[in-house]
Simulated assay, not measured.
Amino acid sequence: MIVITAPTGNIGRHLLSRLLESAPAAGEDLRVIVRDPARLPDAARGRVEVVTGSHGDAGVLDRAFEGADAVFWLVPPDASLTPEEGFSGFTRPAVEALATHRVGHVVGVSALGRGTPFADRAGLVTASLAMDDLIAGSGVAYRALANPSFFENLLEEAESIRERGVFTDVVDADRKAPLVAVADIAAAAARLLLDRSWTGTGSVPVLGPQDLSPNDLARIMTEQFGRPVRYEREPLDEMYTTLVGYGLNEEFVQALVDMKRAKDAGLDAGVARTPATGSPTGFAQWCAETLKPAVLS
Score class of each variant (00 low, 15 high):
residue 217 L to N: 01
residue 129 L to R: 09
residue 160 S to R: 13
residue 297 S to P: 00
residue 33 I to E: 04
residue 234 E to W: 04
residue 229 V to W: 00
residue 96 E to C: 01
residue 62 D to Y: 03
residue 135 I to P: 02
residue 53 G to V: 04
residue 248 L to I: 13
residue 241 T to F: 04
residue 149 S to V: 09
residue 47 R to F: 10
residue 260 K to F: 13
residue 119 A to L: 13
residue 96 E to S: 15
residue 92 R to E: 06
residue 62 D to S: 15
residue 64 A to S: 12
residue 232 E to K: 10
residue 51 V to G: 03
residue 110 S to Y: 01
residue 190 A to F: 06
residue 166 V to K: 04
residue 191 R to V: 05
residue 86 G to H: 10
residue 243 L to S: 03
residue 260 K to P: 00
residue 296 L to K: 08
residue 268 D to F: 12
residue 122 A to T: 12
residue 78 D to S: 08
residue 152 E to R: 07
residue 3 V to S: 01
residue 224 Q to I: 14
residue 294 A to F: 14
residue 56 G to H: 06
residue 118 F to W: 08
residue 101 H to V: 02
residue 146 A to K: 12
residue 51 V to Y: 07
residue 236 L to G: 13
residue 210 Q to G: 08
residue 174 D to I: 03
residue 161 I to V: 08
residue 47 R to P: 06
residue 131 M to Y: 02
residue 253 V to C: 03
residue 124 L to W: 11
residue 85 E to F: 02
residue 226 G to I: 08
residue 214 P to T: 11
residue 231 Y to S: 11
residue 231 Y to H: 04
residue 123 G to Q: 11
residue 49 E to L: 15
residue 287 C to H: 03
residue 113 G to E: 07
residue 271 V to Q: 06
residue 68 A to Y: 09
residue 166 V to A: 05
residue 176 K to W: 01
residue 204 V to E: 14
residue 238 E to D: 09
residue 200 G to T: 09
residue 183 A to N: 02
residue 95 V to S: 02
residue 259 M to Y: 03
residue 67 G to W: 04
residue 12 G to H: 09
residue 158 A to Q: 13
residue 23 A to T: 06
residue 163 E to G: 02
residue 12 G to Q: 06
residue 173 A to G: 10
residue 47 R to S: 05
residue 170 V to K: 04
residue 217 L to Y: 01
residue 226 G to C: 11
residue 209 P to W: 06
residue 35 R to G: 03
residue 41 P to W: 14
residue 65 F to V: 11
residue 26 A to G: 14
residue 221 M to F: 11
residue 245 G to P: 02
residue 186 A to T: 06
residue 263 K to T: 11
residue 147 N to T: 15
residue 204 V to S: 05
residue 251 E to M: 12
residue 129 L to D: 05
residue 113 G to Q: 08
residue 143 R to N: 14
residue 223 E to T: 09
residue 165 G to C: 13
residue 43 A to K: 12
residue 179 L to D: 00
residue 122 A to Y: 10
residue 58 A to G: 09
residue 270 G to C: 10
residue 246 Y to W: 08
residue 76 P to M: 08
residue 273 R to P: 01
residue 77 P to E: 09
residue 121 R to C: 15
residue 40 L to P: 00
residue 136 A to F: 10
residue 108 G to E: 05
residue 72 F to H: 05
residue 226 G to Y: 07
residue 74 L to I: 10
residue 226 G to R: 10
residue 40 L to I: 06
residue 158 A to D: 09
residue 30 L to V: 07
residue 249 N to Q: 10
residue 145 L to Q: 07
residue 282 G to P: 00
residue 93 P to I: 01
residue 64 A to E: 03
residue 297 S to E: 14
residue 121 R to Q: 15
residue 289 E to C: 02
residue 225 F to W: 13
residue 275 P to W: 11
residue 286 W to A: 02
residue 194 L to S: 12
residue 176 K to R: 15
residue 103 V to M: 09
residue 287 C to P: 00
residue 80 S to R: 04
residue 240 Y to H: 12
